[in-house]
Every structure is written in C-alpha cells, then in structure tokens.
C-alpha cells in the first residue's frame, strides 16, 4: 500500500515505558486502521485500547457522615470507559456514606451499569 493512500487520524503517545513512542493511527482509503511507530507488543496493545476503547481507573472522594474525616478516598475497582468518568464523578458527588468504613467496602455497586463498583480506599473510623 502506498504512503499517499493512508492518512494519520491520530497520534497516541505511549505511556507503557519512559521511551514514550509516538504511535500513529492510520486509515487507508477503504477505512482499514493500522498502527505504526510502536517499539513493542505492549505499546501496540496500549495504542489499540486507547484508540478503540480508552479506559481509566477513576479515583476521587465521597462525603462521609459521622467520620473521623469529612471525606473518604474511593476508586473504581476496574477501569471504566473514559467517556463515562464525568457522569460517574457526578453520581459519586451526590452520595454520602456513614462511618465506620473498611478499605475495600463497596460504596456504589455497578456504577452507571459500567460493571465497576466504587470501593473505599482506606479504613475510616467514626468521629470520637
């Protein structure tokens, strides 16, 4: 396939290692996608995931009633779609949980039907 029939649709900077390869995502005339510029298999996998279905672990805080601290750090137990981060943050922001809480406790189940649970990142005792 000649160079001219392909166009670069996106450049993804690989974060798998500090080398930071710039991986080009190209499309040819018939719409087929190809990846170029990666130096290892993990880089290709990262670029494919990032291009087709970028996901992130969400880490934020949730309000706590009666706790030693007013907030508890929380996270999704698995990565969720990047597009859903904003909505997930909104849902977490309006929730309040009562202490005591143990690290790993599920605070919101299956948030936004993403398959991910919101879990507590630490123990939090009641206020003395």
């Amino acid at each position: 396939m000649s160079e001219s029939s392909q166009s670069v649709v996106r450049v993804i900077r690989c974060i798998v290692c500090p080398t930071g390869c710039e991986i080009q995502v190209k499309k040819n005339e018939s719409g087929e996608t190809s990846f170029e510029g990666y130096a290892c298999k993990r880089g290709l996998e990262y670029a494919q995931q990032e291009f087709y279905e970028p996901k992130r672990i969400l880490t934020t805080t949730m309000r706590v009633q009666n706790g030693f601290l007013p907030l508890i750090p929380v996270r999704t137990d698995v990565a969720i779609l990047k597009d859903k981060l904003g909505d997930a943050l909104k849902e977490i922001a309006v929730k309040q949980i009562t202490a005591p809480i143990k690290a790993g406790d599920i605070l919101i189940e299956n948030i936004l039907d993403s398959g991910a649970n919101i879990i507590a990142s630490r123990d939090l005792s009641e206020i003395q």
Partner: peptide, 10 residues
C-alpha cells in the same frame, strides 16, 4: 498490584 496511596498505606 496497582493501588491508590491510601490503599498502599492501609
């Protein structure tokens, strides 16, 4: 494993 800071401390 990939943990958050508080999980690591815990």
């Amino acid at each position: 494993e990939e943990l958050t800071g508080p999980e690591y401390a815990q």
